[in-house]
Structures are given as structure tokens and as C-alpha cells.
Nucleic acid binder design. Sequence first.
RNA 1: AGGGCUAUAGCCAAGCGGUAAGGCAUCGGAUUUUGAUUCCGUGAUUCGCAGGUUCGAAUCCUGCUAGCCCUGCCA
Length: 556
Amino acid sequence: MTEKKGDGTVSETHTHFIKHIVSKDMEEGAYDEIVTRFPPEPNGYLHIGHAKSIVLNFELADEFGGRTSLRFDDTNPLKEDVEYVKAIKEDIDWLGYEPEEVRFASDYFEEMYKQAVHLIKQGLAYVEDLSQDEIRNMRGTLTEPGKESPSRSRSVEENLELFEKMRAGEFADGEKVLRAKIDMSSPNINLRDPVIYRISHTTHHNTGDAWCIYPMYSFAHPLEDAIEGVTHSICTLEFEDQRPLYDWVIANADMTAEPKQIEFARLNLTNTVMSKRKLKQLVDENIVDGWDDPRMPTISGLRRRGFTPESIKQFCREIGVSKADNLVDVRMLEHFLREDLKLKAPRTMAVLDPIKVVITNYPEGQVEWLPADINPENEEMGMREIPFSREIYIEREDFMEDPPKKYFRLYPGNEVRIKHAYFIKCEDVIKDENGRITELHCTYDPETKSGSGFNARKVKGTLHYVEATRAVPAEFRLYEPLIDDEAGGDFMDHVNEDSVQVHHGFVEPNMANVTGNDKFQFFRHGYFNVDPKKSSEDRLVFNRIVSLKSSFKLNG
RNA sequence: AGGGCUAUAGCCAAGCGGUAAGGCAUCGGAUUUUGAUUCCGUGAUUCGCAGGUUCGAAUCCUGCUAGCCCUGCCA
């Protein structure tokens, strides 16, 4: 369990193939220092899959005493926006990582242009006259080689001139394109003279109208890495086929650095969609309440739901890094949230679906303030006092008129403990004209007061409660997975129509002033977060982050 | 099918020629003023399959099977 950081010591846990590669490189002295980067395109919000990559990149470099930068891969102005730049920075910061530097691919447009010219001069790139359709048709198929374009044999001088005109805005979008001259018959389609620059008369969020030609990812990315001195360029599996092109660019550009691309498997979670396209669709079609809806697997959604940075990071560490396609059970994420909050969150009581209990033998008008530990597993959190009186609320589901076997909550004639207070026994059930239970009449035994040491008899059940006259109204939002079933077909057919359950109940009086993102464990319910958007001073709204585990089953 | 990659328990995953770590989930049992926590216990004679090399193979070799990715002027 040596998990040292920042001193170059390799941890013995969480070992994986990328760490092996880096270890070996460092032992062989291949690099002075390891440099990684997290390179999001600012075209959407970050999700937990990105968190896996963020944790990997930052902690890997940190472990070897290296550095990590944040670099926005903004080479396609059609899809990118500053809104996303801002959100991405915020999410990384919230997770607790500080990039060595923040850069943009667009910072290097001039340098990339020069490198393209360098390729042209070597006869390794040419300006293409063919249309997009013609290029596609001549590319061949998976099993047949492509055909060489007539433009391929253009002279260096003419290519230089045309490329300059492309930059100068003398052509319309799609009229010309710059292609790398590699191999039209390569079995790897990425090497069949890939397009490396296209014309797009579009305002860029960063460079404005300075450019009307933009480099393609496959050309830009290796250059960005080389410029920044990145040693290990970590990306996901679908870029594996691009690695030969990545290496080709590095080999033929006028660059001394030799970054190495390493691919790992992206994260998939049960009951979750994990692509920006799909998440954007959920937002655009108003299936959810924005990118930060508490049901979204986005970092901002998880944050609003109440997940902590530490729980997300620990999850990312524990799932490991490999090249095998995977589908991780969301319950694993939930586990790390519970583990993180177990000792940190105050434990208080909330009644989500109240039913009133009148304790008929308790003096009218009397109130007792009972001592209660804030977290029995963490005494440093101290004590609080909670009121108890003749009328309290308990959970409607904690009473059954006709209970099955092994039900040890309240039922007629049964005695249970009220947490931190007394034993009560159900004497009478009051119903309205529709037969709905409106009130329970109980008696209490003064001798059974909590902390009194009473042990003449035992009860099987302990119920939480909120004192009725001082109860603070609150809204509770419970969540189910947004996606019913991750398998097959259009994911929109699997959207759970009933993924939010709203309850109106009460919390303890001492919770009247909680504010955005405060987290609590509500006894027997789970961990809750004060919704930073919906909650206000006069309307408390709690999101259930995760429930407590439970082995209780009715009828079983 | 041309190329690239992957395959270890229900899920994730270590392992790197010396006899299958760990986590999640599940199911038992003990403790419990949360049906929680905690604690103990629970599963691979076998690593996709078939051959081969070796004293010895999840690890090396050969063949096969299955799954994922690649024919954007997206990243």
C-alpha cells in the first residue's frame, strides 16, 4: 500500500500497462521527465469517462515527478465554444488538479501552417482539387486499395502557391484541401493520403477570423504534443489505427521531440450513456435539465448530484487501466461515494414521506432536547440536540397494519425504538374516510430513554423521526438510472421516463440553514446533497446521491 | 472479409515461465439505538478454444473462435 506521490516513487497498487511503459522509459533514461496532457475538445461537457483520463494523466505524471498540462484541442471551430472551455476548466479544478499550463491547439496554428509547408517542400503533401465525394470514392474500401488522385503529382511550387491561396481565403469551403502524400494502397485507411487541412470560413472562439484553414486532428495532435514536449500521449482505443499516421507526422515534420501515443480502453458504465453526442441529445431534447442535471454522468451533473471529487477519483483509480472493452457496474462508483462520506457527512434525520405519530401518554406542551452524536463513527464531529415531544413524524413505510413475518418496524401492538429517544408502542391507527392512515396513536415508556442504560427488554427496530412542531419542510429528489438498459438499439428507447421521484417531508430544525452542496447522511435513507441550483433559504431541496445499502426485503 | 486491437469469476482487474492478488456485486454468520457501518466467512484445479515447446505454461509457439475499432473536409 505504498501510494507515494510526486517523489518519483512508483506505487505498488494500481499498476497497469501504461505505468509499465513509463517505468521502463524512465529506467532507460529515454526522457528527462515525463510529460502528459489532457486534451479535450471544447465541444461539450466533461463526463466521468474524461475523469478516468484526467486522473490517469495527472497522477501518472505526478507519480514520476513529471508534469501535466491542459490543452484544448480546438481545431474545428464549427463545433467549439468558450462556454465549454469555461466548464472544462471548472471541472478539472473541482476535481482537484492544477495543470502545469493551459494551452490551446489554436495557439500553434502558425507553427502548424509552417509544418504543413515543410511537408509540401519535401513532396509529402499536396493540394487536392477533388471534391469530398470524389476523394471518398477514390479512397477504396476496407478490402480494396484506393486510387491516386491526379492532384497527387502537382509540383512543389504549385502546391506551395495553392496552399498559400487557401490560407489567403481565395477558395470557398470544400474547394481545396491539403493532403498528406503517404500510400493510397495502404491496408490502413488512415494512411491513404489523409486530409490534413480543410477550408472553413468560420469564426474561431480563440483566433477569431485570423484563419480560414484549419488543421485536422491527425495532423495537429502529434504536432501539439511535440511542441509541448509531451512524452506520453495517452488517448483512447479508437485512435489506435491513427498511430502510424501520428508517427508519420512526427517523423516528417521539422520537430525534434518524439512523443509516443499510447491507447487505453474508454470507460463504460452500466445504465449510462457516455458519449458527448448522446449526452448533448439528452440536453437538446430536454430529457434532462441541462448538462448538470443530477442524473447526468457529466462531472457537473455528478457534482450537482453530490458526488465528491475524492469518490470520483478513487473510483477512477480502482477500475484500472487496460485495453479490454469494459462495462463497469455503477454500483462501484456508488461504493466509493459511501466510503468517502461515511466519516465526513453529518448523520441527521429526515422523514421523506411523513405520517404523524401522537404519543398519547406524553405531556402536552412538553419538549425535551435530546443529545445526539453527529457521526458516531467520527466523534470529533461532536453532538447536537434534537427536540422530542408529543407529536412526531415517522416514515410512512415504517408502519404496516398487517406486516409480514420478520417485519420489525412499527405495527399495532409492536414496540420500537425512536432513535435517540424512547420506545414507543402502537396502540391505535387513525384513518380518514378513504381508509388512508392519517395518524398513529402510540404510548411511550419513560424508562426507555436513550442513554439511560435501560436494557430490561429489547426491540428489533429503530426508527428515525422528526419532531412535528419544529420540523423544517424540505423537498427530496430521489434518482433512478436515466437509462434503463444499455444494450442494443437506439438509446433514446431506453430512457427511463420515471428517473426522478420527488418527496415532500421534513428535516431536523437544526438544518434550516444548510446551503448548496452541503452533504448529509439521512438515517436509513442514504447520502444527500443540498441542490445548489434548486435549494434556497425558504425552500430546501436535497438530492439523494446514493442510498444506503440494504439487505431488507419485504416478503423475503 | 484488408488492417488494427482484445479475451483471467456476474463486473472491473493484477499477473510478465515456478503453480491464479485486490476491488465491486452476491450469498451466509457475528456485532449493532441506521435491516447501515464494522468483523468474519463465501467463489477460477483453472485463465476464449485446440494443439505444441518445457521438469513446469494464464504467461512462449502454432492454429482456430468470439468481440470491438477503421472507408469524416469530426475529435
